[in-house]
Design a binder for these strands. Sequence first.
DNA 1: AACGTTTTCTTAACCGGTAAAGTCCCTATC
DNA 2: GATAGGGACTTTACCGGTTAAGAAAACGTT
Lengths: 345, 345
Amino acid sequence: MTAQPTSRVTIKDVAARAGVSKGAVSLAFNHKPGLSEATRDRIFLAARELGWAPNLTARTLAGSRVDVVGLAICRPARLLGLEPFYMEFVSGVESVLIERNCSLLLRLVRNVEEEVGLQESWWRGRQVGGSILVDFRADDPRVAATGRLGLPVVAVGHPAFTGGLTSVWTDDATAVTEAVRYLAVLGHRRIARVGGAAALGHTAMRTAAFDEAARSLELAGAWQVTTDYSGEAGGRATRSLLTAPSADRPTAIVYDNDIMAVAGLSVAAEMGLNVPRDVSLLAWDDSQLCRLTHPTLSAMSHDVHGFGAEAARTLFAVITGEGPGSHPVPTPVLTPRGSTAPPAV
Amino acid sequence: MTAQPTSRVTIKDVAARAGVSKGAVSLAFNHKPGLSEATRDRIFLAARELGWAPNLTARTLAGSRVDVVGLAICRPARLLGLEPFYMEFVSGVESVLIERNCSLLLRLVRNVEEEVGLQESWWRGRQVGGSILVDFRADDPRVAATGRLGLPVVAVGHPAFTGGLTSVWTDDATAVTEAVRYLAVLGHRRIARVGGAAALGHTAMRTAAFDEAARSLELAGAWQVTTDYSGEAGGRATRSLLTAPSADRPTAIVYDNDIMAVAGLSVAAEMGLNVPRDVSLLAWDDSQLCRLTHPTLSAMSHDVHGFGAEAARTLFAVITGEGPGSHPVPTPVLTPRGSTAPPAV
DNA sequence: AACGTTTTCTTAACCGGTAAAGTCCCTATC
DNA sequence: GATAGGGACTTTACCGGTTAAGAAAACGTT
């Protein structure tokens, strides 16, 4: 890409106008000692008159801070658009970046290996000051890679998967358990779960928690399937669960996100089943979507925006040298709405 | 932000290892003439052995290309998460950037003025090689500002609002007309439209087109309201439209996005109205959402992903010096599904 | 008054590349 | 055999900042 900015005001021009050296201007703009109040003022005045602000690229190259945070999302581009979760998450991240005058460098990658390469080149090229890593899986190569590079990162995921990295996470196991218990208390004995991508760490965690809850509650039936998080997959999974003979099919289904729950709801309607009388549905993530359907969707509600914000704040802490830590954010809480009720019989 | 990359391989190390000057390495990596095949190979080999890749920051500062595209979205951070449109659009942009090894610099801004300032600092600081501008309004200050700066941009919006900037746009007026005609042909005589943000150019355009269509078709009733694009607002608007006495309320409603249409659908259900028998609903943008509801939503369907991709491609053309142009992308086409039908009476 | 300290600012060397101008050598030409 | 013309590199001067080291003036001390 080539194309030249028209007028260029540099530190030199400011220095000349204020009658000082560029070193002095630099000192002033970095709030470093060694300048009298008078010259400091003169410099700021000159800068304001010329409309100058330090060039971040040059500043970065010269070896100081980098005001950019990296985020690579591993997903085929076509699917990204469909996940309300990420949009909310990103907006939470942005809300913190904005107040620190930082920007987000966003990139879609096809797989973890590609992400490792990307993070490495970002960091070595000083394109980012740190990164937010998401979608951890078992034996995630990013743990070792970022450690080796010295790249400051915050890992969004359960410590079981994020190794020694500073992490921000929700206690999904507890949430799944709560969800299943709630449905059991309502009287459901045959419960299914439509999970997300099997490769992801938190999916595995939820799967294990679901199994455990089903066993400890001695449920009569417990099914689990994994999908790709898309509405289509969620709908398909629901259809297959609900086509079993009525005495043998789940009376309640838990979904791993809200898009799939919406799809499930529509499949139930299309099959002539009444929600919640014939089957109860429970969503996850709880974006605005859950309040827009009819009936409204009960959900494991979760402040995704706040989750993103916390991740960003934690990253800043890491960058400024804070040691590794584990930052749980509030566990998703059950928000009952219109899609859950005791089973009909 | 401070934190140092551990090992640093620079062009100098590569040059030393290949036994050439750093100028030669630069020539090799930029595929410029003036080097023998033999040395070229030696240089690439050395680079590979050392795991070196040119530092983009330095490269940028030295005045060549910038591999970053800017995108500022003007919206309160909390709302961004709710718009499937942007997520899809961004994913389309990414799909083109990814194949050119470029990244997207994303930033939320509170208002257009803030965006103007941001774009200016991005450009002057060579943080971006060009930008994608969205959400044009009447007398948009960005037209003049980007022209003055010489910032290469692609404007996503109708030429009526984007001044002399190269634009990528959909013919919303024609689409609105088609939507209204379609409903009229089905037999609807009282049609309403729940529009987006009033300040936006394309909203104004759609409003005018709707008025015009209503007049030319001599509809018995035509209502229009503007909202903030949120599901809540869409639901509210729908409720207020449908509470009129039945002989005097719309039998069809057109929405400016899909979230509002989904909300409208649920409001209708909640009011005991059957869709499409009692009222027909027609969405816009047509994300996956429209196929997940029951009944499925008819929509003015539109390849938003492709729209984003086209915007990105056009930006690259602008950056490489192509003169101003106007690039219409296909007009949204009506995709009838389950939410539209002739009125009951 | 001579001398060590500060304070205040300047100089100059980077950061890691790019690119124009310069050097050297090899070959074709008259 | 002298000269012009290229090809293949190297030199060197930036890009726009930061920062360590140096210098000049102001200040306090004995």
